[in-house]
Structures are given as structure tokens and as C-alpha cells.
Amino acid sequence: MAKYIFWRILQMIPILLGITLIVFLLVRVSGDPVLLMLGEEATAEQIEALTKSLGLDRPLYVQYLSYLGDVLQGDLGMSLRYVNQPALEIVMERLPATLTLASTALLIAILISIPAGIIASVNRHGLPDYLASFLSVFGQAIPNFWLGIMLILIFGVTLQWLPVSGWDNPWSVLLPAFTLGASLSAVLTRILRSSLLDVMGQDFIRTAHAKGVSPVHVIFGHALRNAALPYITLIGLEASSLMAGAVVVEQVFAWPGIGLLAVQAIGSRDMAVVQTIVLFAAVIVMSINLIVDVLYSFIDPRIQHG
């Protein structure tokens, strides 16, 4: 197992290199930060002077190699939007907000999907099943920015039960986390329902019923454990979509996490910050995938990595 994990970590290096190159190029072809910074009143001399002082007048490959060299030494560059402040520090201070949001969203998705999936599969073709199916299709179909704005209108503006935006107190996370978790809970409900139905038709479940095991124990003791594999796989796969969804949700709720930072940094062509965010996101997603793969062998010992 240790050898497997080591190899997986080694494989991350060329992927990360590729990612740095792509992001580096994308940020540079999409617009000139100098023109953005100087605004309407810029003169040609000012543009030239700032371009030079930021090192943007050098050939692209020189800029990229010097960036890579700096990254290896732990220097991810200075932010352009936040004058003279290090990109790494700016990104790091946002991690807690995004992790809080994403983990609450995941928790909400799990808390909704497990009972919903069980009820739907137990009552196959019954009203609860149709209701759960309808809600999960609905949850997947609505765009999260729209859901976010609706939740703000209902719970923030009209009922005034929850804070509208920002991260002021522990209640602030509920609306954005529900918005972010809604579509995930829909996907998870559907997968749990179908894999439970699969398992419920198998011989060992019939045997359990024949032995007189209580239906509750059959579901929680036998069926759920066997249906968990695709469910956990999906959580791993959807981790990256949680990160992507956070970009939109954080913008809507002014949630001061990495997603909001990414949007603002891209808008102002804050190159060092954009590059740092993408590097972080890549490492996080790859780590989650690795953890899920390792978890497999614990849940199902038949799966061996070697």
C-alpha cells in the first residue's frame, strides 16, 4: 500500500507541471494586467514602465522558467490586485472559508441523500420514491446561482432567518452550503437508490430475510455497507465539482473563500494569485482522489492496490 501511495504521489509531479504551463499561458493570453491596472488615463510610457517592472516584457518561456524556479523555492509571486502582498499568503488565508463551505455542503448532501436514497429504494415505485426522484432531478437541474439567489430572497430577505451573505457568524455558512450541496445531494440520492436496489436483489439479502433478520438490520447492517462503494466513489469524483461550484456560490454569497478570490483575481488578471489557486485546487483534487482510492481497500478488502 505504501508503495502504491508513493507512486501515486510521484505521478502528480508531471500533472502539476502540465497544469502550471497551461494556466501560465491562459492567464497571459487572456489580457494584459498592465492595461487593467492603469485604466483610462494610461500613457504609452507608463504602460511600458509598468510592463518592464513586472517583468512582462521578457519572452514567455523566460517568464515561465523563472516562475517555475521561484515556485520550487516556495515563492509563488506577488499579487497585483492586492498591492505588494504575497500570493501564497492571500490564498492560504482563504482556505479555511472554502474548506468550511465545502465540508458543510458535503455533510448536508450526505444527511439528505442517505435517508432519501434508503426511503426511495425501500418504497420502490411508491410515492416516496417518485418524490425523491423528482427532487433529485430538480436538484441537479437548477443552476446553483439561481438557487442561491432564491434562498437569499426567501430566508435572508423575506423571512430574515439567516444572514444573506459574508462570513460573520456560524449561521452564515448554511445558505451557501445548502446551495452548494443541493445538486450533490441529488446525485448521491440517485446513486444510493440504484445501488441499494441492486444489492437488495442479491442472494445474501434474501438469505438474511429468510433467517428472520429485521428489515432495519438488513438495510443498515448488510445492504448499505455493500451499496457504499459507488456512493463513496461518487463523493470522490464530485469533490472537484464542489470546488468548481464554490466559485459560483462564493461569488453569490460574498463568501470570502478561494472561489471568490479566483473570480476576482481572474477579473483583474492577478496572475500570481490565479496560478497559485489553480495549483492548490489541483493538489486538493488529486489528494481527494488518492484518499478515495485508498479508502476502497478498507471498505472492500477484495480491492488490492499494488
Binding site: I149, I152, V157, Q160, V164, S165, G166, V252
Partner: peptide, 18 residues
Amino acid sequence: HRTIPESSTRVGELMSGG
């Protein structure tokens, strides 16, 4: 001084007294 980039959220905060 709060930063709220999304204008509909900004207005929502105003209307809720935030």
C-alpha cells in the same frame, strides 16, 4: 465596509437590514 461583488446580493443585504 463590506465587499459584496454580486449586485443582487448587495441589494438583498440592504433589504434585510444587513
